[in-house]
Amino acid sequence: MSKFLKKSIWVFHLNTGSCNACDIEILDVLTPYFDAERFGVKLVASPRHADALLMTGPVTLEALPKVINAIEATPRPRILIAMGSCSVGGGIWHDTYSTIGGVRELLKILKEREIEVDHVYYIPGCPIRPEAIIYAIGLIKGLVEKKISSKVKKAVRRTSG
């Protein structure tokens, strides 16, 4: 990721069928108390201006074509941030008939359509805490290290051979 992209992250809020709890937390991060703008984060109204897409919700079948359009409209390098349990893994909707079950399935669909996503970040939580969003900003900017448990590290090492 380029130095200036890390310094200026313009985000577009993409609600893919969430209950609005995560959306309220996103607005909370932008209020003077948490002040996300101090990190160069700016909420934009068009995916054409965006660097990162803040995706909330489990991606309903109704929203899917619009979500793909919005991701396609975002110029590269594009970052996808899955926010909240629903977006990360489908949450309580992971196997329902009307959703695709989160970002993993969405990425498969995008791959089939040859739409590239350069970076994917996950913020789990139901709803996500504003502090967690700020931590994600810190991760993107390289201010904090990625935290993974020793169990996951071992699993990654095992799979990578």
């Binding site: 200036f4 200026s8 003077p32 002040d35 101090r38 990190f39 160069g40 660097d51 110029p75």
Partner: peptide
């Protein structure tokens, strides 16, 4: 504006960072 809102706000060179970043982005 940030100080009036009791915020820290972005760095003074933020608008330049934004523009330089945009020059490195894809043109859709």
């Amino acid at each position: 504006k940030a100080r009036i809102h009791s915020r820290i706000g972005p760095p003074i060179l933020q608008s330049w960072y934004d523009i330089i970043k945009l020059f490195g982005k894809e043109q859709v």
